[in-house]
Design a protein around this nucleic acid. Structure first.
Length: 562
RNA sequence: UGGCCCGUAGUUCAACUGGCAGAACGCCUGGUUUUGGUCCAGGAGGUUGCAGGUUCAAGUCCUGCCGGGCCAGCCA
């Protein structure tokens, strides 16, 4: 895996400790096997990225095996659309094709079924004819013990017969279920005779109409791990209380020794200024708050991709944050710093003006075009140079001029001299305004002696600003993205995250001015528009750019502090 | 007022298993710079949730509190 020159911080976390301890004790004969088990009912987001990176890097670091396993046990919510997108996003994130073919829980339906019969015969499972409500009520509460189902003590033969009929499609949905027979008075609610199978008539996207009953997560998960010979079954904290059941099932099936996986939980990833819950993300899409699952503002991997986040930067981020059992929220700035770090090294620089202000150089020789040489990437000499036409009629950024400059504002102002990057020093002599008093044009003079960017007399300028020649400029557009939510912890105040949606998270800038070489940019690559930020060319629309992330901005900090 | 889990700079994590509490990001100051970017140097920021106990020595072990999270789907 690429590391792009990151300082080699030795990784240390409680999961690595466990893996190494198991290696030391030879628990699995030196094997390490992990898996990423998404349900194919939605798109992957950064939260999943953490789990993917964790599982795949543990397998990588210890010469183990990492599998993608679709946890497709619920035909009503799952579809092939998601199967495809998950694999696609996963490979994008990992930066390579999967080394193993994707697995499916549905591949194990037969084995799971046989094991269920096994449990029935051991008197450890029974068919319950009660409906959802009744079962739920009987489960009791945290402080009250549950009630045994009247069907709990059915005979083995009757259970077997009923279960086979369930499979044969003799029952309607909700008519009956198969339950593990554990303990209705257990402190852990998951142990109060959990459901193993339920009837579902919906067609499964892989097994079609073959099955009328489907295993629940609890019944399928640990057994699937065991079938695949997973060693370390990593999942998020919310499954902590399911671990006891995970182990109980393996106990009943007498899966032991180096064939027996064990579950370890870690904290899922959270970020400031966004949400990662499936429900909320779905709302954003369906209520058209965003333009789709791949909207660059979305924390989905598709969104990241469209926004121009390099996959390796996301991986490095995941590597860096490590894992722990503390539920917390990462500052989004940390992710952004990894994005910038990568892009600073790799993105070519270009000049673009997003909010153009006309500048006329009054002493420029009429019709003269001066080709200026510019460095493509100061961090990477091999990126070479390019030429940019300089003329007497330019556009500069409106924000780079202030009629009445505030303290510490270094850029252009009446009577002030600045440097045009790769061009000359210019001085603002006159402001042209329209009837409403808006500045429409600046009349400036240039100093021909400053062609090299320095004045022979040694005088300094405080600022260097970017520009584009008016007659050579390409016209395009840019979309500027801001945080999707306006508060660090959406919903912290009202309890409803949607109350904190930032109404200005997307700004379209049309008629932006681009230096000519931008027309030749290769698709997919991210460029830095100097002094503005990193921009990702849209995959379809020419000269449309998505702002990946802005540059760090000292001036913005100064303004904010006021 | 059940059970399980978690509390270390603002944030997220380390601390070789009892031996001088560190890093990254963020913030601040200075330097370099034809990007107010990058880079370099430095700084602030901690009663390790609280209170006891064991020990020459406790973030680490013990006890008790406090705070937070998760669990009562035929979702995963």
């Amino acid at each position: 895996m690429e590391t792009q020159g990151e300082p080699p911080i030795k990784k240390s976390n409680f999961i690595i400790d466990l893996v190494e301890a198991d290696l030391d004790s030879n628990r699995y004969d030196g094997r390490v096997q992990t898996r990423f088990p998404p349900e194919p009912n939605g798109f992957l987001h950064v939260g999943h990225a953490k789990a993917i990176c964790l599982n795949s890097s543990i397998a990588n670091d210890y010469s183990g095996v990492f599998n993608l396993r679709y946890d497709d046990t619920n035909p009503v919510t799952e579809s092939t659309e998601f199967v495809a997108s998950i694999k696609d996003d996963l490979q994008w994130l990992l930066g390579e094709e999967l080394k193993t073919v994707p697995l499916h829980t549905s591949d194990y339906f037969k084995q799971l079924y046989l094991w269920a019969e096994d449990l029935i015969m051991k008197g450890k499972a029974y068919v319950d004819d009660q409906d959802v409500k009744t079962i739920s009520k009987q489960r009791g509460g945290f402080q009250e013990t549950g009630l045994n189902s009247p069907y709990r003590d059915r005979g083995t033969e009757e259970n077997l017969h009923l279960f086979r009929e369930m499979r044969a499609g003799k029952f309607y949905e909700g008519e009956c279920v198969l339950r593990a027979k554990i303990d209705m008075g257990h402190d852990n609610m998951n142990m109060r005779d959990p459901i193993m199978y339920r009837v579902k008539t919906e067609e499964h996207f892989r097994t079609g109409k073959e099955w009328n009953i489907y295993p629940t997560y609890d019944w399928a998960h640990g057994q699937s791990d065991a079938i695949e010979k997973v060693t370390h079954s990593l999942c998020s904290l919310e499954f902590e209380s399911h671990r006891e059941l995970y182990n109980w099932f393996l106990d009943q099936l007498e899966i032991t020794g180096n064939q027996r996986p064990y579950q370890t939980e870690f904290a899922r990833l959270n970020f400031t200024y966004t949400v990662l819950s499936k429900r909320l993300l779905k709302y954003l899409v369906e209520d058209k708050i965003v333009d789709g699952w791949d909207d660059p503002r979305m924390p989905t991997l598709r969104g990241f991709r469209k926004r121009g986040y390099p996959a390796v930067a996301v991986r490095n981020f995941c590597e860096h944050i490590g894992v722990a059992k503390t539920n917390g929220t990462h500052e989004i700035e940390l992710l952004e710093s990894f994005i910038r770090n990568n892009l600073n090294q790799n993105a070519e620089r270009r000049m673009a003006v997003l909010n153009p202000l006309k500048v006329t150089i009054t002493n420029w020789p009429e019709g003269h075009v001066d080709m200026r040489q510019a460095i493509n990437n100061p961090e990477d000499e091999s990126a070479g140079t390019r030429e940019i036409p300089f003329t007497g009629s330019l556009y500069i950024e409106r924000e780079d001029f202030m009629e009445n400059p505030e303290p510490k504002y270094y850029r252009l102002a009446p009577g002030r001299e600045v440097r045009l990057r790769y061009g000359y020093f210019i001085t603002c002599n006159k402001i042209v305004k329209d009837k409403e008093g808006n500045v429409t044009e600046l009349l400036c003079s240039y100093d021909p002696e400053t062609s090299g960017g320095k004045a022979p007399d040694g005088r300094k300028v405080k600022a260097t600003i970017h520009w584009v020649s008016a007659e050579h400029a390409l016209e395009g557009s840019a979309v500027l993205y801001d945080r999707l939510f306006s508060t660090e912890h959406p919903g912290a105040e009202t309890g409803e995250p949607l109350d904190d949606i930032n109404p200005n998270s997307k700004t379209l800038r049309e008629c932006i001015k681009l230096e000519p070489s931008i027309g030749d940019l290769t698709r997919g690559s991210v460029v830095q528009f100097e002094r503005l930020g990193y921009f990702h060319p849209d995959e379809e629309i020419p000269l449309l750019f998505h702002r990946t992330v802005g540059l760090r901005d000292e001036w913005a900090n100064i303004v904010k502090r006021r």
